[in-house]
């Protein structure tokens, strides 16, 4: 059974003129355990909304998302939060690190909503991403590349089955982008997590064996393009 199964998923938002604007309309999508898939899509193609629906941050208007054997539409919000904390790691384009916390605390915080803080594992993760000497640094004391590595460590902190990465290299320079991508893929492999990455960067997409074009999956993106 796939780790992630999506069927007839729809999400629309209210436009300023009062009309409903469909952003996601995916009839079927699946992701196997430990698989690494890249979704290509331009800005406004619904990439972030799609990932937010999978993460349970947004509730779909209709359709089903089955993650790790659990149908998300059958879960209440608290249960979805719990599922997100224990099953999903999320890497954002803007890193979304908490500025008031150290690197180690950012990772520990991610753990505290899941199985519980494990300082030894958090330190090991940060060492793995090359930040063993910066455990007590705050995000603003790090370079953008280093901040993204903290975000990678945090995403893997709860040993998730699925890592969602939303334009993870969008804010990085060429060299850092390549290194970050390599790190994300390796770290996911080492931790047995599947990776679903969305990007519009051709160089990033070229690193993946399995690249799917979002506009082929998301009918709303097709409509938007037309």
């Amino acid at each position: 059974m796939p780790l992630l199964e999506i069927s007839q998923l729809k999400k629309a938002f209210l436009a300023p003129d009062g009309s409903r604007h469909t952003v996601v309309d995916v009839s079927a999508f699946a992701l196997e355990e430990r698989a690494q898939v890249a979704l290509s899509g331009e800005s406004g193609s619904g990439k972030t909304t799609f990932l937010n629906l999978i993460a349970g941050i947004l509730a779909p208007d209709s359709g089903g998302i089955r993650l790790a054997g659990r149908e998300m539409s059958a879960l209440n919000e608290a249960q979805r939060d719990r599922l997100r904390a224990t099953t999903i790691g999320y890497i954002f384009q803007t890193f979304n690190l908490l500025q008031g916390y150290t690197c180690l605390e950012n990772v520990l915080l991610g753990m505290s909503f899941g199985p519980g803080a494990n300082r030894v594992f958090a330190e090991a993760l940060l060492k793995r991403v090359g930040l063993g000497d910066k455990l007590n640094h705050r995000p603003r004391q790090l370079s953008t590349g280093q901040q993204q590595r903290v975000a990678v460590a945090r995403a893997l902190a709860n040993k998730p089955k699925l890592v969602l990465a939303d334009e993870p290299t969008g804010n990085l320079d060429h060299r850092n982008a390549r290194e970050a991508l390599q790190l994300i893929r390796e770290a996911c492999r080492e931790n047995g997590a599947a990776l679903l990455l969305v990007s519009h960067d051709r160089e990033v997409l070229a690193q993946f064996e399995n690249v799917q074009e979002l506009h082929k999956i998301n009918r709303a993106a097709v409509a938007e393009a037309q």
Binding site: D81, A85, G100, N158
Partner: peptide
């Protein structure tokens, strides 16, 4: 608001 959104994305519940 952003910090709260990050906490929620990490799995923090509304009541937390």
């Amino acid at each position: 608001r952003r910090d709260i959104a990050i906490l929620r994305a990490l799995g923090a519940r509304r009541h937390t």
